[in-house]
Amino acid sequence: MSILLLFSAGFIVEKIILISVLFAITLGVAAYSTYGERKFAAFFQDRLGPDRAGPWGILQPLADGVKMFTKEDFRPNEAERWLYILAPGAFMFVACMTSAVIPWGTQLTVFGTPVDLQVADLNIGILYILGLSSLGVYGIMIGGWSSNNKFSLYGAIRASSQMISYELAMGLSVIAVVMMTGTLSLREMAAQQTGFNWNVWYQPLGFLIFFICSLAECNRAPFDMAECETELIGGYHTEYSSMKLGFFLFAEYINMFISSAVTATVFFGGYNFPGLDPNWLGGFMGPIVLFAKVFFFIFVFMWIRWTIPRFRYDQLMHLGWKSLIPLAIFNMLLTGAGVLYFGK
């Protein structure tokens, strides 16, 4: 269907509201991810983490935000002015765009009108996500390059080559799922996985690859080569300060949130959970289930970060090119054989 046909007033209002809500949730989740990260890190290390701002430190993200805003906004003399400013914005923008195609639930009934809990049901949703995640590189590259600092540049180059490399394996692993489900639309994919009929049972290898790749895509440990402090100071955002830095950090958490959501949707049944009809609670059950899964994955992200030591750069590339991609191809073949045999 063409987007052009859908321009009706009610539709637009509905979508705008949905987008705003989603945006707010995304930002909120991202904000509290930072909190969660610090908290969980503390727990894994037998500590308590931030606990001064508010009860259990619950206002810490706010405090961080205020700090970010009020710090001096410093711009290096030799930086490319416009690109330097553009980069964090671009990174943030791309990160926020991705949530458009994720089906947060089935339908919500608000004031008697059913509302689709998805901004746009593109029939190529998963490709849309892959496409946007590939665009994330630009923010990093432009930021790293325009800072005119060699550490930033190294960080940017590392980050972007890492992202490009892992995108391949990621795409290939997704293709296996697509072969199995026969659709590129995330909505249909989620709808297919009713009850406990989750894709992960059919695609354990695919999930593993996808998950490892999403770690790498989000520049998370053990693949956080881009900001490997011991070597590169802060990586591509070494020269950034104040809210520009905040954007970068924030966008990374958004990315983590979105990739958790995608993982949950593609492999773990989305809004489905056995025994919990997503239409319960006026349709709110779906989002609740999905968010539970999402939070679980965010937790796993952090769990991994605080467990596994960072890879060396060459190890990272070896893993990507020599292990994951062949594995993903093998998985594809396997899936193909399976689809052929079972006629699913």
Partner: peptide
């Protein structure tokens, strides 16, 4: 992961060294 999880759970239930 199991090792770290053990620590996590321990702290969750109040056995922090902090």
């Amino acid at each position: 992961m199991w090792t770290t999880l053990k620590h996590f759970v321990r702290v969750m239930f109040g056995k922090s060294h902090t």
